[in-house]
Design a binder for these strands. Sequence first.
RNA 1: GGUCCUGUAGAGCAGUUUGGAGUGCUCGCCACCCUGUCAAGGUGGAGGUCGCGGGUUCAAGUCCCGUCAGGACCGCCA
Length: 586
Amino acid sequence: MIRTHEAGTLRKEHAGQKVTLAGWVARRRDHGGVVFIDLRDASGSAQVVFREEDHAHDLRAEYCVKVTGEVRQRPAGNENPDLPTGEIEVVASEVEVLSESAPLPFPIEGSSGVSEEARLKYRYLDIRRQRIADALRIRSQATYLANEVMRERGFVYVETPNLTRSTPEGARDFLVPVRLQPGNWYALPQSPQLFKQLLMVSGLERYYQLARCFRDEDLRADRQPEFTQIDIEMSFVDQDDVIELGEALIGRIWKETLGYELPTPLPRMTYAEAMARYGSDKPDLRFGVELTDLTDYFSGTSFRVFQAPYVGAVVMPGGASQTRRELDAWQEWAKSRGARGLAYVLVQEDGTLGGPVAKNLSETELAGLAEATGAKPGDAVFFAAGARAASRDLLGAARLEIGRRCDLIDESQWSFLWIVDAPMFEEDGEGGWTPVHHPFTSPKPEWADTFQDNPGEALAYAYDMVCNGMEIGGGSIRIHRAEMQQRVFDVLGISKEEAESKFGWLLEAFKYGPPPHGGIAYGWDRVCMLLAGGESIRDVIAFPKTASGFDPLSGAPTPISPEQRKEAGVDATPKGDRPEPAAQQS
RNA sequence: GGUCCUGUAGAGCAGUUUGGAGUGCUCGCCACCCUGUCAAGGUGGAGGUCGCGGGUUCAAGUCCCGUCAGGACCGCCA
């Protein structure tokens, strides 16, 4: 090794030892006759002292250097109790510049903000910064822990293909042209869903993988075109078994990275309850502010707007003192979400009700409103009326916005829960049904025989783990009987031929004694983002892409040359003697 | 596909409302001074296509139109 010690590990016990360090010049404090360098390596940093004969004057920020010198306790009064190495310093006797650094595009040390674009373009420098380096380390630690838990429980790590077949359901696929078979295309997997079910047919019984997944959809702070899941599947289990495993996995990770004891078993809430109380299938329980259903309350109202299939409300504490401008801003906010507006009533300090909606309500309606919604003097009550799902969505979003604006969210808190009993199907807007989860999700046992008769009410054997208002994992018990699978396809309007063409390879496998099985997948980037305290999954991805899918570092994606285009067979027509590739969704 | 915010020196910002010479702040950079700092300090200096294109105007960083890039959100993401 070039060095004998790591800078961040030096303590006063090392005093008197001759050491050689290697790292980067983090900070330079040049006093002319004496120069201090903070030498940073992966372990931390230590102060190196140079005397004038040492030529340290020419060292610059982020030069990569090797320093030999003697560790000594700092002179009395010069200790720095804020630093782990603050009791010692290294008196340099030799210094070698291993490589110089050009002036930096942004500061490595210090906490000043830097644009996302600059950070991604020079991501390798961004990772030198403490915050990102820490985030990547905590991700690594979490990954080790996950592997430990899975190993202890006898799971088999299996890698599934990244070059695979396009799947017709779900997200848009990334496609890869195939030179050997011009006109035919691989798809990158949206998840290893079908392969992991095949591995259950194979009898592995317990499978897991840190799987790369690819989805060609628009990006968000918590979405990248490629991302990682911890993908898990188990045979001969029911929902409680998978939930127990999920809690053991997340519990170990939170305990050993953050020292947080997961309060297991985690609370479970049905999808229906979550939607009714919080207007969300991933409620943030770090604060209260629940929705109230006022449909019955306003069932006889003469106010036309509230003559709707659903009327609900959410209370903004202290909201009555908002200015006209702030209340107007709520209208704009609601419109930006596709609503017509956000009706409101202000509860004045004397208990009277104000706001434009109040005069449309009857004496009786006004009299009981505060009690019905739980509003107190000084609060504002926001209403949504219309279709139930859309109205609850709006109120749920308003609830989160209230939480943010009123600073009701305790950021130091962890709120974990399971959302269970999601519906199997939802209306696709064209008179048909579409799966809420995916078409291989089993109904709950009580719906096993009858789901096809009431598709809108049938409950799925599915579960999502929610943390701080974010879905971090989700899974289900799968269908393993052909007869039941056929009934699901019938509800979805998928013909036998269509099912054969799209999923034939899975259905074929399921002819050979498939075991009952189920699983779960955790969004690993989101999990690590929560552990690292980040705002975006980009914080825990070494080389992420921008919101338009561009990588400012490598410049990807790029056009291809006409030669590449020809060779890849991008424009070729497939030969007819192959099975029809699954139709692409546009 | 849509809505909103942002774009001014290497970095972070102010200036845009009410048009008047690239006017300014913090950090960094370069040179010099400085023997106990740890966000060291001091003196001096360099550094600008105000994202890009067009328009209005005697005059545009500032107003208008378009466009590009980044970010947030809606749609979308089983």
